[in-house]
């Protein structure tokens, strides 16, 4: 409910009219949130389609798996939403996850305190974000190049640490974040389970939503994406907020590394290749414009779930050859972007 009221222009009172006129009138006043609503509608459509064609989708075990398997993607999708709204981009998330998880697992196996290790993993991410932010803010490097450099750096450092899968000790407290907690005991294995990782992802979503829509920092982030110069002239803390956005993105990547490592128990230098693209795709599907200035955290979550659900459908179908997976991902992304384009055209 509050999603669209938070950023849409103030509603103009419309004269009472027929239902169709009311719908078009609503669409006219909610153009920024329209792609997000469309994503929601398509997501629901996908769920219904999958339920009818393949069955066993709307049941506790499938939905809980969808959440558990995509909790790290949800976290980095939120991170990318922050960055993209300022008009920037962060290509380093996947590589930062690789570095954080490899370094974290190696430290934990070397006998470091598990809680300290988790904090360090987030701190590693924050450091990469800080360097990106510094490059962008003080050396005038474009965000694409700065975060590309951090992507290379993180991936390279992860590879110098180890090139083989690093296994987390079975008794490590980090694994506790991946333990499954039964919420609803269904028949046979059809239980609704969550992991602490899922809870963390949900907290990140709520936190991201709160910061973007209920704080001054959030308003500044939208203002920077709208037009940076104007935001500067308005006296908003542009420099600080831009740095902050990349630090947030880096820290959330570190957090995603914790959640992912806890679930899998294995870290490797090739973890997370291409995840930045998944996260960008999730944000775009959810209605965040790559030009900045518009987007919603909740939309990105829907985007991440759309991608996750697509994987479920592809694996359920069985007849789709694995080679086609990325073709289908590309096709779905194209459909969403074309839809957005149609909406933006209407606004023009």
């Amino acid at each position: 409910m509050s999603v669209q009221t938070a950023t849409a222009p103030p509603e103009t009172p419309t004269p009472p009219a027929g239902p169709l006129a009311r719908v078009t009138g609503w669409m006219r006043t909610h153009t920024t949130s329209l792609p997000t609503w469309a994503a929601l509608v398509i997501f629901v459509g996908m769920v219904i389609y999958a339920e009818i064609v393949y069955g066993r989708i709307l049941q506790p075990s499938t939905t809980s798996n969808l959440l558990i398997n995509n909790s790290h993607l949800i976290i980095i999708a939120v991170a990318l939403t922050f960055v993209i709204i300022t008009g920037g981009i962060d290509l380093s998330v996947g590589a930062v996850i690789a570095f954080s998880s490899v370094a974290g697992v190696m430290l934990a196996n070397a006998g470091w305190n598990a809680y300290l290790v988790m904090v360090l993993m987030i701190a590693f991410g924050a450091t990469f974000g800080l360097i990106s932010g510094w490059l962008i803010q003080y050396l005038n490097v474009q965000p694409f190049i700065a975060t590309l450099a951090m992507m290379f750096l993180a991936r390279g450092l992860a590879s110098t640490l180890s090139t083989v899968p690093e296994r987390l000790g079975d008794d490590s407290p980090i694994r506790a974040l991946g333990t499954q907690i039964k919420i609803y005991d269904g028949p046979k294995v059809n239980d609704f389970v969550i992991t602490p990782g899922v809870v963390i992802a949900l907290l990140v979503v709520l936190g991201g939503f709160f910061v973007l829509h209920r704080t001054r920092t959030g308003r500044t982030i939208y203002a920077i994406g709208g037009k940076e110069q104007s935001a500067q002239l308005m006296g908003l803390p542009v420099h600080r907020s831009k740095m902050l956005v990349y630090v947030i993105s880096g820290s959330l990547s570190g957090l995603a590394a914790v959640v992912y490592t806890a679930r899998l128990g294995i870290a490797q230098n090739i973890t997370g290749v291409g995840w930045e693209l998944d996260a960008i795709a999730a944000a775009v599907i959810g209605g965040t414009l790559l030009t900045g200035g518009a987007g919603f955290v909740l939309g990105s979550v829907i985007g991440a779930l759309v991608l996750g659900l697509m994987n479920v459908i592809i694996s359920r179908d069985g007849s789709i050859p694995p080679e086609m997976t990325t073709v289908i991902t590309g096709g779905v992304l194209l459909a969403f972007v074309l839809l957005q384009r149609a909406v933006v055209r209407r606004r023009e």
């Binding site: 992507m151 750096l153 991936r155 390279g156 590879s159």
Partner: peptide, 9 residues
């Protein structure tokens, strides 16, 4: 596999 780090530098 560590080449990217040098590119970053």
């Amino acid at each position: 596999s560590a080449t990217p780090a040098f590119k970053a530098a």
